[in-house]
Design a protein around this nucleic acid. Structure first.
Lengths: 208, 208
DNA sequence: TAATTCATCCCCCTTCAGGGGGATTTACAA
DNA sequence: TTGTAAATCCCCCTGAAGGGGGATGAATTA
């Protein structure tokens, strides 16, 4: 893991002091400027003053809702990259965040490794969504499967896999090679964070 | 296959003359009394007159619906065992038949071997349901999984398989050997007529 | 008592899944 | 123009799934 330029300024907004501090400590080893705020007001103030490159934003901020803040920031400071860091894997929150075109979404119960990975990706211009939060959100939403997760071909393969077809059959049906299908499968599993057909099926079928 | 006492009287009710004749021919080698009827009215008449032990009943009978007939017979002649023989694997039909506590259900596209097996079982007091018609009906209905399909242990294994656990894990969880779990899996697949984990999961998850 | 069912276990075999590395071409975007 | 992403393909490997044969003891039922 190679983290980008440590001239990067990061702002952490989370009312859980302990958590906030812990994350700050974690990031200070890689970034020399790590600011912390604990409520919505000081968040806005700090943004104006420091112009961070990246904001780690908790959804459950006192006074101002995290989503509202994000919405405001999106308009006023479109260059600030935002990663939503929250406890809850609530569909509507994720959807709001996605609607705001937020760069990343990480769940608090994920390993810190994942946050670092998210930061790395987002700073390099990519997006990052916690593999645990596909449910009810990402997969069958075309816009997202397109940009964030599965490509067209991967989705085709995913559907056929779920139907119980074996790689060889899928290859024939799609007019591509067996190895191609295996590659797709590999990528699908990677992107969706599953590692067996059973998990894939259960994941997909949990989306209504 | 040893078919029970050939003093047994069998009545076949099916408006498809050809099919009816074929079945009759098939059964006449094992049963000396095989009657045939081709519509609901003559069915009722024949039942009164001959008092068959076993009725092979088509659902799509002209004039009177097979289910209605079965319902009527259940009340008036509870001793006549009924095997529904039909083309369609329609959930509501199967459910109606089961609600009437019908002894057996065989699909027309199954091998004749299966019909003989069904007759044998039903005449010996057991029930028989075509392995192809589990969908939407049988599996998580305890009464049926108990008597007709999976044993207690098999159901346990099935659940764990569906959760995506591998045989070895299941063995440890259940405190039995790996080979035991493989046997259960084999039997589950056999009984449910599936031949892959994907099919199993999709089958089970189609039951609401 | 004899027959059947259930739960348990065993061996064999083949195929495929799953995961680790790649590469190439095309096309589009920075 | 240079790079990135998508689509395609390749090789290797391990282990497990899937399916074919069994067997055995205990319990239940005919």
């Amino acid at each position: 893991m190679t983290l980008p330029a440590n001239s990067t300024q990061i702002l952490i907004a989370d009312d859980h002091r302990l958590f906030n501090d812990a994350i700050a400590g974690l990031l200070r080893s890689s970034f020399h400027s790590v600011q912390q705020v604990f409520d919505g007001n000081s968040l806005l103030f700090s943004v104006q003053k420091n112009m961070p490159d990246l904001l780690l934003l908790d959804i459950n901020l006192p006074k101002l809702n995290g989503i509202e803040i994000a919405s405001k920031l999106r308009k006023d400071y479109p260059d600030i990259k935002i990663i939503v860091v929250t406890m809850y894997n609530q569909a509507h929150v994720v959807e709001s965040a996605i609607a705001l075109n937020i760069e990343g979404y990480v769940l608090k119960d994920s390993p810190s490794q994942l946050l670092l990975e998210a930061i790395e990706k987002v700073l390099s211009g990519q997006k990052f969504f916690d593999p645990k939060l596909h449910k009810k959100v990402i997969i069958n939403d075309d816009a997202f499967t397109n940009q964030l997760l599965l490509t067209k071909r991967e989705r085709e393969v995913a559907e056929k896999l779920i139907a119980g077809k074996k790689a060889e059959t899928i290859a024939q049906e799609m007019g591509v090679g067996y190895e191609t299908v295996k590659s797709y499968r590999k990528n699908i599993y990677l992107k969706l964070g599953v590692n067996s057909l059973a998990e894939l099926i259960n994941l997909m079928r949990d989306l209504e």
